[in-house]
Design a protein around this nucleic acid. Structure first.
Lengths: 194, 194
DNA sequence: TCCATAAATTGACTTTGGTCAATATTGCAG
DNA sequence: CTGCAATATTGACCAAAGTCAATTTATGGA
């Protein structure tokens, strides 16, 4: 017989996530140790892995929390300029650091179902598609593809630009970033050309 | 004073890579243990890490070897049909498994400089751009962006489709794959529309 | 209230990636 | 050929993720 989730369970999960949040703000995702998480949360190691499949799933949950707060305010863009602002904003969030890029690559698709990240991305795509549909109706954007396809294409460009912007240990990080940025804009223009 | 690379060094590196190749064909990338690699190669653990930064860099080197053999035969596509065949081929190679997708996401950009993967991708992009340039001249493909930009955009779409095709533990893997496949084609058409 | 059992938690233990001071081998100048 | 400095190799050791049998705690029916 299957029972309802205990309040205790949710409380423990929240304590773990809160601990994770604290650590990430101080040491970044790369510096997060599960030992330290359970220490701060006041649980045993096993509890951590009873709640989250592995370290990466935990980080993905933290990232989803954090991105949700940033992405929620972004509504459907009403014109080309607003669209480009949204793309730029999402790109900046996604390219924040190498960990973020890796987590998004791994969990933003169907593989991340149930973690929050996938739904988050879907919502952004839906809002983009909504805006694109209106722009297509006004002839502001080409109608060579359905709005949903265009929206997903734009997300693909953002992911790619974010990945490209992750320059390992080069000194020319700024140049690489600028190039990725420009590429995103040029490709978006090509895709949207009326 | 800096000396020339010893033959011994290259031999050791080759033994490690050969061992890795064997293991991957049997157990896949996820099943590769560094212990087993050095056991088969007949070296100490430390030698492995003297040659490769970490396990992922080693896997990236293996992947680069393997992809090089597959990508080299692909010339510059002469027309739209040939272009779509190349895209499909590259997509299939990249979407082979979750490890491949993750490695490409991490090392195909500037972060993977010197590992071979980045150059491999660049070569494909260059050949695509070459073909696209000719097609643009014939009016077969839209000239809304420079050929190099279009080529990189197409690679972005391939990466995205490959990532989307990685369905964790769902039974509907086939449906997900088909959706990713269709998306790639539709977005490519939108980008190339004359 | 009481008990059977599902669910949650524990922490010692295992696995595995990665380090490093010590050692062995090689290239090269004299 | 010889000695020395650069390079390569070694393997014991460490750090941290992840496991699991045992234990505790909550739930819902009788």
């Amino acid at each position: 017989m299957t029972r309802k989730v205990q309040a205790r369970t949710l409380a423990t999960r929240d304590r773990l996530l809160a601990a994770g949040r604290e650590i990430v703000t101080v040491s970044g995702m790369a510096g997060l140790r599960t030992e330290e998480v359970v220490l701060r949360a006041g649980t045993a190691k096993g509890t951590f892995f009873a709640h989250f499949t592995d370290r990466d799933h935990f980080l993905a949950a933290l990232l989803a929390e954090s991105l949700a707060g940033e992405l929620a305010p972004l509504g459907a863009p009403q014109d080309r300029a607003a669209l480009m602002r949204v793309l730029e904003r999402v790109y900046v969030l996604f390219a924040a650091d190498a960990e973020t890029v890796a987590l998004l690559a791994r969990f933003s698709g169907p593989a991340g179902a149930g973690l929050g990240l996938d739904r988050l991305i879907c919502e952004v795509v839906d809002r983009l598609a909504e805006g694109l549909g209106m722009m297509q109706a006004r002839g502001e954007v080409g109608a060579r593809a359905r709005p949903e396809v265009l929206a997903e294409g734009l997300m693909a460009l953002i992911f790619h630009a974010a990945a490209s912007a992750q320059c390992g240990m080069h000194g020319d990080a700024v140049a690489v970033r600028a190039r990725a940025d420009r590429l995103l804009v040029e490709m978006a223009e090509a895709l949207l050309w009326p």
